[in-house]
Computed example of a mutant assay.
Amino acid sequence: MPVPPDPWPDSRPQPGPPLARRAQLHRLAVRWAGNVVVVLYVGVALPGALVTPWVGMLVIAPAIGLLSALVAVLVEPKLFRDPARRHVVVHVAVAGFLLAPFTAGVAASGAVGGTALFVLVVLGTFVAGDRAFAWVGSPDAPDAPDVPDVAAVRAGLHTLPTARLLHDWETTERLLRSPRHAPVAAELRALLLDELGRREPEAVNRWLTDGGTSPAGYIGNDRDPAD
């Protein structure tokens, strides 16, 4: 008896381009916003240094820079222990050092300085929120989930209940926000997507067509793995 062709590989829409495009646009927006924040901050601070009293530049500014770096290390000790991430401490120290001349530059620039400050606050909040959200959802956070072993998941994937597959999909959502674990999360999602598509091709097809972020609302979680 001939085996009917598997409809899943040919009929499912490819989830990569829409989701990848959104993620790429988001990263691009964050990158450009961060560049604008740096340009505005430094662009106002440099002229502000000319009108800042010497006490502010030689005493207050270095003190703020050192304090900022110390706070960064206390909040995230890995920044100092990891050589690949120590540049973050330097950036924080420089930002703290420039705070005094930046304040003086805003005060001396009048309406232009006020506008620059407003734009900086709006874009800075966007960038800082993205960074904080990524850290909270990453495996570096205290309550972050463990990173699954891809080989173990691949070996036992067909025996897992559908509810576990849906749970693991939600777990990878957090892992994707960590640059360190995003490649592993993407590989896990590919495995989960293939297995979910094998079990529920029509439901997964509807989910991908609708562009949803989670398959939980489309797939029942009580299906036996052998079905």
Rank of each mutant, 00 (worst) to 15 (best):
V3G: 03
W8D: 13
P9F: 10
P13W: 07
L19P: 00
A23E: 08
R27I: 00
A29W: 09
A29G: 11
R31D: 07
R31V: 13
R31A: 15
N35Q: 13
V36S: 11
V37D: 12
L40V: 12
V44H: 01
V44T: 14
P47V: 06
V51P: 01
T52K: 06
P53S: 05
W54R: 14
P62C: 02
G65E: 01
L66C: 01
L67D: 01
L70C: 02
V71G: 02
V73T: 08
P77Y: 07
L79S: 08
L79P: 00
A84N: 13
H87F: 14
V89N: 02
A95E: 03
G96I: 01
G96C: 06
S109P: 02
A111V: 12
A111Q: 10
F118T: 14
F118A: 15
V119Y: 06
V119W: 09
L120T: 13
V121Y: 10
A128R: 15
A128L: 15
R131P: 00
F133C: 10
A134V: 06
P142A: 11
P142R: 13
P145K: 12
D146M: 14
V147S: 06
A151S: 13
R154G: 08
R164W: 02
L165P: 02
H167V: 02
D168F: 01
T172S: 09
E173W: 08
L175P: 04
P179N: 10
R180Y: 02
H181Y: 10
H181A: 06
L188W: 06
E195H: 03
E195G: 02
R199L: 11
R199E: 05
R206C: 07
T209F: 05
P215F: 04
P215I: 04
A216T: 13
N221D: 15
N221I: 02
A226N: 12
A226F: 12
